[in-house]
Amino acid sequence: MLRYTKLYWYFVIQRFKILMEYRLNFFIGSISTVLFQGASLVALWAVLRQVPSIQGWTFEQILLIYGLLTLSKGINHLFADNLWVVGRDYIRPGQFDRFLVRPINPLFHLLADRICHDAIGDFIVGLSLVSYAMVQLQLPINLTSIGFIILMVISGGVIFIALNLITAATSFWIMDSIAVTNVVFHTNEFAQYPLTFYHRSIGMVLTWLIPYGFASYYPASYLLGHEIGWMAWLAPVVALVCITIAYKGWLLGLRNYGSTGS
């Protein structure tokens, strides 16, 4: 574990050196994430300023959900962005082979190969939204609530990573998994709002099948003192189950890996 931590840090430093070589890229990446998030927020605000609340949810309460989800997404963006392109950039051109002949876990190698600094944008937006919402809603900001949020963001991040991992593993069969990952990943947009907005079935899917709800709706409900909030405590368990299943799927994919010719 210590070895992997040290090695990870070493990869990060190398990545940073590359980024410094492409400085413009570095800034464009971070800024574009902020702009992207900003645009969705403006749209949300444009809708919600017309009405004081939807089904009893105020603008600030929805911002809290939105902010928590953004932070979880940021974890995935920062640590596991390479899962998106494992098929296109590694398996198809035959670059994946080198991960398999080195004395470290191939998945670790893949993830460490490119940490994604663009995630800074997610963290800036997410943190601002959560703090703003908590202050406006006069929710207590203390060690307990901060600890709770950290636990939830990590669990949510792991859920995001797990879902991207299991869809990325399809690359071993179909070469390029971007489309599959896209379909599953974008259902997270439902989780930007209270699950009660939707038909029951959608709420069920986002809780038990593609459990992004644990990254946003349930922790926010807990902070707001809603009855359903107790579900938030399931988030770490759900995260653990998801990542275990996803890793098993990944290993199955590795067994099926066919490499490329020559």
């Binding site: 082979d97 398999l100 002949v101 890996y257």
Partner: peptide, 13 residues
Amino acid sequence: KSTTIKMLTGILY
């Protein structure tokens, strides 16, 4: 040839 080498190195099962 390459298939053999890839099995020897652990890349292919």
